[in-house]
């Protein structure tokens, strides 16, 4: 085979050319000493500790993913011990995320229990906040009982903020808005919170398409609250309730519109009425037009959009926003 002959000749030639270099290299006085090491959690933690100082967000992300992916093969007891010993919030977050990953990957649920205990009970608010962050976009909301209700009443605003972000992101990214118990937990935590801005943030964002009748009743009670941002958020949440609760929501909102004085809350009511009824809401909106002349253009915009025959709420909302900007 001519090709093989050529290949053999080339390799032989290359070796001849390289041989002086190889032998010269072998004669260097201090070759690097290679030491045998075993892969260990401590070694991994050292790498992560060093990597935290990196300016590269991509590298830090890689280290986070590395520990989470390795978590399933590390000994649980070793991981839990390291988590219990660690005091640096950044490292606590990594270790907690690894424990959460073990539970989410179908291993023991006790791993998540350890994280829950620390999120609720650690004396350092920075550690509590880091631990809560580690549970983001996980199944924690289903496995931790009333943890989020308690976290939303935490003394530290950072912990409350992280818990609110978890509730919002879990609802959006883990459950895609379809999971009733997760939405109920978010509503319960928001309603029980002492921080009005976070209550408004959760209720104004979380999908309520699968909430229970109890959660809907809680939202309806919030319509009489003192904080206008919370009232507006509760109104928005009531606009997205499941079909079984639409009639009751609509009646609550229609009754509220006449008594409400804040124009922003009234705008939210108009939007929720439109969402609950689509084109069927036009007669209700027309009746409300005379209640507050300042909002007549808003009512007209909704009437126009609902008459376009669009079949999805996202399209209606986008068209309404376009009309509002065009004016």
């Amino acid at each position: 085979m001519p090709v093989s002959h050529v290949s053999r000749a080339s390799v032989a030639g290359l070796l001849l050319v390289l041989s002086p270099v190889v032998s010269a290299h072998a004669q260097t006085p201090s070759p690097p000493v290679l030491k045998a090491e075993t892969c260990s959690l401590d070694g991994l933690m050292d790498s992560i500790r060093r990597g935290l100082g990196s300016k590269s967000e991509a590298y830090r992300g890689y280290l986070r993913a590395l520990l989470r992916e390795t978590a399933v093969t590390l000994p649980e007891a070793q991981l839990r011990d390291a988590f219990a010993r660690e005091r640096d919030p950044a490292m606590v977050e990594h270790l907690a995320a690894a424990l959460v990953a073990r539970t989410d990957r179908g291993l023991e649920s006790s791993a998540l229990d350890a994280v829950r205990e620390r999120a609720l009970g650690d004396a350092d608010p920075a550690v509590r906040a880091a631990t809560v962050r580690a549970m983001r976009r996980s199944s924690a909301i289903e496995r931790t009982g009333d943890m989020y209700e308690r976290l939303m009443r935490d003394a530290s605003p950072d912990v409350r903020r992280e818990a609110a972000t978890n509730l919002i992101e879990d609802n959006q990214f883990v459950y895609s808005g379809h999971h009733g118990p997760a939405a109920d937990a978010a509503v319960a935590a928001a309603v029980g919170s002492t921080d009005a801005s976070l209550t408004a943030r959760i209720l104004g964002t979380v999908s309520t398409e699968a909430i229970s009748a109890d959660s809907q009743a809680r939202l309806q009670r919030m319509l009489r609250g003192g904080d206008s941002s919370v009232r507006a958020a509760a109104v928005t949440a009531l606009g997205g309730v499941p079909a079984s609760g639409m009639k009751s929501s609509r009646e609550s909102l229609l009754a509220m519109y006449r008594e409400e004085e804040d124009p922003e809350v009234r705008k939210a009511i108009l939007q929720s009425i439109a969402r609950l009824g689509f084109s069927g809401a036009v007669p209700d909106l027309q009746r409300l037009r005379e209640v507050d002349p300042r909002l007549a253009p808003e009512v007209d915009a909704w009437t126009r959009v609902l008459g376009m025959g669009l079949q999805e709420w996202s399209l209606l909302l986008r068209e309404k926003q376009r009309l509002s900007q065009a004016r």
Binding site: A101, D104, R105, G106, S139, E142, Q172, V174, Y175, S176, G177, H178, H179, S207, S314
Partner: peptide, 28 residues
């Protein structure tokens, strides 16, 4: 899993076991 915008990922044909129930998990 159905996302809120309608996109859906499906896995078919597996055999039922004691792990076959609605669950929230990562590669389980």
């Amino acid at each position: 899993h159905a996302w809120s915008d309608g996109y859906t990922f499906r896995q078919w044909h597996w055999i039922k076991t004691s792990d076959s129930y609605d669950r929230t998990c990562d590669r389980c």
